[in-house]
Simulated assay, not measured.
Amino acid sequence: MKKTITYLTVFFIAITVLSSFKKGEQKIQSDPSEFEILVQYLEASGNFINSELAPAIIQASEIKDNLKNDKYLVLDIRSEGWFDYGHIKNSVNVKGPELLTYFEDEIDPTSFEKITIVCYSGQSAAYYAGLLRLAGYNNVFNLKWGMSSWDSELAQNIWVKNSTDNFADQVETTTNSMPQKGATPKLSTGKTDAKEILKERIEAAFAKPYKEFIVKAEVAFENPTDYFIASYTDAENYNLGHIKGAVQYQPKTLASTKNLYTLPADKNILVNCSTGQSAAYVVAYLHVLGYNVSNLAYGSNSYMNSALVEKDLNGFSDKEIQNYPLSE
């Protein structure tokens, strides 16, 4: 009898220990990673990158029509020298990496209807606008084509020079399969609160120069296997031609319930849209999430401009230049 009681006692102790172990194991398994916490928070907080609000691009004509509207603020992130050479009336010169501090300490962003970030081409402005959107500033936009849309002289060394057909004969029209869902980036902020993780990731993103995200067309065409190329375009653009190996990612499909987890965490993701501007918003988003990501400079306009112009698929041409007055 005593032996039976002893056996039963040992049995129940073993069951209790095993049960505790399994509960602990389940807890470990159920604790979300920083990446998952951040994705869930961003998707629950408007899911900007996958919404109809993205990309937040504004036309030059709207800025021109609101030059006297004090609810429209234009922030020019070009160099001081180029700003002094010619800028949009009433615009303010602010360095790109200092925009977050400017929003937090220098202005009341909520007092403006629209805040437009302006650069040379629209691409770096789109990147910073994307970061500010993630930070919760929902009235931030970038000027389409940058200052190239405002003045023809400013456009010459930017969009005019970089809109080419240099690799139009090297594009492919093959449909490349999207990978299966896989591992996700590992963030290491040490935070468990979503807002704190986001704050640290955005601050780190502002500290990294935008130029480090840029990949030129000649590099991509020469070494396409160095990248996982995400063609962030609709089917018409993709089927018209893309860099060898590029996989189509339809805009608005980078949610956790759709295609986000198919992006590789162990490769340099090169995002290619038609102009480099929609891609810049994606680059901002993916970089904050911890992906190794780059932007194809000037998008598909850098290698097959004429085809885009002919098909009216965001191809840059002289008609995009408005030749509005500049202030000195």
Rank of each mutant, 00 (worst) to 15 (best):
Lys3Cys: 04
Thr9Phe: 14
Val10Met: 10
Phe12Leu: 08
Ile15Lys: 11
Leu18Thr: 11
Ser19His: 12
Lys22Ser: 13
Lys22Gly: 06
Lys23Arg: 12
Gln26Asn: 14
Ile28Val: 13
Gln29Phe: 08
Asp31Pro: 02
Ser33Leu: 05
Ser33Gly: 08
Ile37Ser: 00
Gln40Arg: 14
Leu42Val: 00
Ser45Ala: 12
Ala54Gln: 09
Ile58Leu: 15
Ile63Ser: 01
Asp65Trp: 02
Leu67Pro: 05
Leu67Thr: 11
Asn69Ser: 14
Asn69Val: 11
Leu75Phe: 06
Asp76Ser: 09
Arg78Phe: 00
Gly81Ile: 14
Gly81Thr: 15
Asn90Arg: 13
Ser91Val: 04
Asn93Ile: 05
Val94Glu: 01
Pro97Gly: 10
Leu99Val: 04
Leu100Met: 11
Leu100Asp: 00
Tyr102Ala: 08
Tyr102Glu: 07
Asp105Trp: 09
Glu106Gly: 07
Asp108Ile: 09
Glu113Ser: 14
Ile115Leu: 07
Thr116Ile: 14
Val118Ser: 03
Val118His: 02
Tyr120Gly: 04
Ser121Ala: 14
Gln123Ile: 09
Gln123Gly: 07
Ser124Gly: 04
Ala125Leu: 05
Ala129Leu: 03
Arg133Lys: 14
Ala135Thr: 04
Tyr137Asn: 09
Leu143Phe: 06
Trp145Arg: 03
Met147Tyr: 02
Ser149Gly: 08
Asp151Glu: 12
Ser152Pro: 10
Leu154Arg: 08
Asn157Tyr: 12
Ile158Thr: 12
Val160Gly: 03
Lys161Met: 10
Asn162Gln: 10
Asp165Cys: 10
Asn166Pro: 06
Phe167Glu: 03
Asp169Ala: 13
Thr173Val: 12
Thr174Met: 08
Asn176Phe: 15
Ser177Glu: 15
Met178Asp: 04
Met178Glu: 12
Pro185Tyr: 04
Lys186Glu: 13
Lys186Phe: 03
Leu187Ile: 07
Leu187Tyr: 10
Gly190Ile: 02
Ala194Gln: 06
Glu196Met: 11
Glu200Thr: 14
Ile202Leu: 10
Glu203Pro: 04
Phe206Arg: 09
Ala207Gln: 14
Lys208Ser: 05
Pro209Arg: 08
Tyr210Cys: 08
Glu212Tyr: 09
Val215Cys: 06
Ala217Val: 03
Glu218Tyr: 12
Val219Asp: 15
Ala220Gln: 02
Glu222Leu: 10
Pro224Ile: 01
Thr225Asn: 15
Asp226Leu: 05
Phe228Asp: 00
Thr233Gln: 13
Asp234Thr: 13
Asn239Gln: 14
Gly241Pro: 03
His242Arg: 12
His242Pro: 02
Gly245Trp: 01
Val247Lys: 07
Gln248Cys: 05
Gln248Arg: 15
Gln250Lys: 15
Lys252Trp: 03
Lys252Tyr: 07
Lys252Arg: 13
Thr253Gly: 02
Thr253Asn: 05
Leu254Asp: 03
Thr257Ser: 15
Lys258Trp: 04
Asn259Trp: 09
Ala265Pro: 05
Val271Thr: 11
Asn272Ile: 08
Cys273Gly: 11
Ser274Ile: 01
Ser278Ile: 02
Tyr281Met: 05
Ala284Gln: 04
Leu286Pro: 00
His287Ser: 15
Val288Ser: 04
Leu289Cys: 09
Leu289Arg: 04
Leu289Lys: 06
Gly290Ser: 13
Ser294Glu: 10
Leu296Glu: 00
Leu296Val: 01
Leu296Asp: 01
Gly299Asn: 05
Met304Arg: 11
Met304Asn: 07
Glu310Thr: 12
Gly315Gln: 00
Ser317Phe: 07
Asp318Thr: 09
Glu320Phe: 05
Ile321Arg: 02
